[in-house]
C-alpha cells in the first residue's frame, strides 16, 4: 500500500490535491482512500490530507504514521512535527524557492524543493500552486502517468483549465530536469 501525506495552509488546495491524486490513481485501476483532517481550520492555518493507494480495497481507518511520500505546500510548515511521519526513504516535495541544502539541517530526508509559485506565475495561475506541485509530485512518485494526472486536472479545474494543465506539465518537467 502506498501512503502519502499532503500538508498545506487552509485555502491553498491541499485537500483538492489529495482528491485529484486519488482520482488519478483510481482511474489507473487502483483502490484509493483520501481524507482531510482540518478541525477548526481557517484560511492560512495548517491542514493535512492523507492518501492511501492499493490494489485491494482499503480497510484502515486511522492516520498515516509513516508516509512513503509527502507533498508540502509551504516550506514554513516543514518542521520536526511534520517530519516525525517521514523517514530517510520518504520522498518529500516542498513548495520552496530555497535550495535543497537549505533543508539539510532538518535531518536525513529526501527533500525536493520545487518553485511552485514561479511555475504558477509562468502559467498565468497567479498564486494557485497546486497543479504545479501535483506535476512535480507525480514525477517524484514515479507510479502515475503524467498524462493521467493532466486528464484529471483538466476535468476538475473550475477555471483556467489549460493553464492548470500547463503548470502540471512544467512541474513534472522541472523535477525531471533537475534529477
Amino acid at each position: 500500500m502506498l501512503e502519502v501525506l499532503i500538508l498545506g495552509r487552509g485555502g491553498q488546495g491541499a485537500q483538492t490535491a489529495g482528491n485529484l491524486l486519488a482520482q488519478a490513481f483510481y482511474s489507473d485501476g487502483f483502490y484509493v482512500q483520501t481524507f482531510a483532517t482540518y478541525g477548526g481550520a481557517r484560511r492560512g492555518t495548517p491542514v493535512s490530507a492523507s492518501l492511501r493507494v492499493d490494489a485491494e480495497p482499503i480497510r484502515l481507518r486511522c492516520d498515516i504514521e509513516q508516509a512513503a511520500a509527502m507533498l508540502c505546500f509551504d516550506d514554513s510548515l516543514l518542521d520536526e512535527n511534520f517530519l516525525r511521519r517521514a523517514n530517510s526513504e520518504t520522498r518529500i516535495v516542498v513548495n520552496s524557492r530555497q535550495s535543497r541544502e537549505a533543508f539539510s539541517s532538518l535531518g536525513d530526508y529526501q527533500i525536493v524543493p520545487i518553485d511552485g509559485l514561479g511555475i504558477a506565475r509562468n502559467n498565468d495561475m497567479g498564486t494557485v500552486v497546486n497543479s504545479a506541485l501535483l506535476g512535480a509530485f507525480v514525477a517524484v512518485l514515479d507510479q502515475l502517468d503524467i498524462e493521467t494526472m493532466c486528464r484529471v486536472v483538466l476535468a476538475s479545474a473550475p477555471v483556467k483549465k489549460e493553464q492548470n494543465v500547463a503548470a502540471s506539465r512544467e512541474g513534472f518537467r522541472q523535477f525531471q530536469m533537475t534529477h
Binding site: 482528491n19 483502490y31 484509493v32 482512500q33 483520501t34 481524507f35 483532517t37 481507518r61
Partner: peptide, 12 residues
C-alpha cells in the same frame, strides 16, 4: 459514522 475517517474519506 465517525468524523473525518468516514465523513471526509473519499473512496469508491
Amino acid at each position: 459514522h465517525d468524523a473525518f475517517y468516514v465523513s471526509h474519506a473519499v473512496e469508491p
